[in-house]
Computed example of a mutant assay.
Amino acid sequence: MSSINDQATVIVGAGPAGLTAALVLARYRHRVVVVDSPRAPRNDASQGVHGHIGLDGVPPAEIRARAWRELSRYPTVQLREADVDAVRAADEGGFRVELDGGEAVEAATVVLATGVVDVHPTHVEGFAECWGRTVIHCPFCHGEENAGRRWATVSDSADLAALSAVAFRPWSHDTIAICDASTPGVDEARTAARSRGGDVVAGTVRRLHHRQGSLYAVELADGQVLERETLVWTPPQRQQPLVTRAVDELKLTVDDGGFLSVDEARCTNVPGLYAAGDVSARWKQSFTASAAAGATAADAIHAAAVLGAVHG
């Protein structure tokens, strides 16, 4: 009969999903290897995590450092800073996780918790400087810190523009939406928004005027300048290159947006390969949702290991 402790899990990514999965598995006394890239994480632009009890306002880097210290106390956990080049099925079962530099780690199970890549509009001057401060992707995440300001939101859908032109009233009493003039239904959206006290402006954002990341105006391609202090802009997202390669090589199932498809246990269509956090969720990307997904994956891994040990 095999021991549960013989079943190593490699967790790729040390965001809220990966770190929570590692902690839960450590509490189950599983062998865990957490591999995280030494490069700046996606949430590096955030000034603080919000909406998670006990951590509200704490910078992501501090949370990661705390978690790293907590995990280092568990003898079954290894923490590695490295880029993962590939996750492949091993000939003898399980997986082979290949790190940069040629090293490889064998694992019975793998959790992909890499997060995703925000595709920023590189043609918009000032976007990068304002990102995470006064250009925000989520009112829940950063709305409180921008409350009382003049808001605009960028939308590629007329229906969403009409809604978002008034939906952010809990944070601002002066809200508009910006939608490309060629978008079908933009005139009807403007009429609907104005009837509710908002507005839809037809145009394409060209430049953000700011002072050290503090937005004060949005300039459109036609030269129109809108005095706005907060811009809600949710950019498109793509998978990390590692995940894209894994999709091709392991034939992972993805949804229409390219996000990994998982079951209730956060398992992909490949047995033993789990995905948690933003990598498998387009619209549930909060710290809390990602942490919950990581815990769910860890519980499922433990349950599978127990069954395997009993019947092995």
Results as ranks from 00 to 15, higher is better:
124 V>K: 01
131 W>P: 12
307 L>R: 07
31 R>A: 12
222 D>R: 12
311 H>I: 06
195 S>P: 13
57 G>Q: 14
183 T>A: 15
292 A>T: 13
224 Q>E: 15
242 L>R: 02
142 H>G: 09
292 A>I: 10
222 D>P: 14
295 A>T: 15
265 A>Y: 01
247 V>Y: 04
303 A>F: 09
270 V>S: 00
185 G>Y: 13
228 R>A: 00
251 K>I: 01
57 G>C: 12
92 E>R: 07
189 A>K: 05
297 A>D: 05
262 V>R: 07
33 V>Q: 14
133 R>A: 14
281 A>R: 15
246 A>W: 02
195 S>L: 12
169 R>W: 02
18 G>I: 13
240 Q>G: 07
164 S>H: 06
49 V>Y: 14
67 A>G: 14
124 V>I: 05
252 L>P: 11
178 I>T: 11
144 E>W: 15
39 R>A: 05
43 N>P: 08
248 D>A: 10
253 T>S: 00
113 A>P: 15
174 D>L: 03
22 A>M: 01
207 R>W: 05
304 A>P: 10
96 R>M: 02
295 A>W: 14
58 V>F: 15
270 V>Q: 02
125 E>Y: 14
130 C>F: 15
230 T>I: 02
282 R>K: 08
107 A>W: 01
5 N>C: 05
201 V>Y: 00
117 V>K: 14
226 L>W: 13
219 E>R: 00
89 A>Y: 00
282 R>E: 04
54 G>Y: 14
106 E>T: 09
305 A>I: 01
71 L>A: 13
8 A>M: 09
109 T>H: 11
42 R>S: 10
295 A>P: 08
98 E>K: 13
106 E>S: 08
103 E>D: 11
264 E>T: 15
115 G>V: 08
17 A>Q: 12
184 P>W: 03
255 D>L: 01
4 I>R: 09
185 G>M: 12
169 R>D: 01
217 A>Y: 08
298 A>F: 01
262 V>N: 07
279 V>I: 04
312 G>F: 02
7 Q>R: 08
33 V>E: 11
38 P>R: 05
76 T>H: 15
225 V>H: 15
252 L>R: 06
147 A>G: 12
104 A>L: 03
60 P>W: 04
86 A>S: 15
304 A>Y: 05
184 P>G: 07
296 T>E: 14
136 I>W: 06
137 H>P: 10
238 R>G: 06
132 G>D: 10
241 P>Y: 02
9 T>I: 15
271 P>E: 01
153 T>D: 03
68 W>R: 03
176 I>C: 03
169 R>F: 00
298 A>G: 04
262 V>H: 07
254 V>M: 11
282 R>T: 04
311 H>T: 13
9 T>A: 14
108 A>C: 12
150 R>S: 06
272 G>K: 00
208 L>Q: 10
115 G>A: 07
96 R>D: 07
287 F>H: 15
6 D>P: 02
167 A>V: 02
274 Y>N: 01
308 G>D: 09
27 R>P: 10
19 L>C: 14
175 T>S: 02
221 A>F: 03
64 R>G: 09
248 D>K: 09
115 G>R: 11
142 H>M: 11
180 D>V: 03
84 V>M: 00
69 R>M: 05
130 C>P: 09
194 R>P: 15
170 P>C: 10
253 T>E: 02
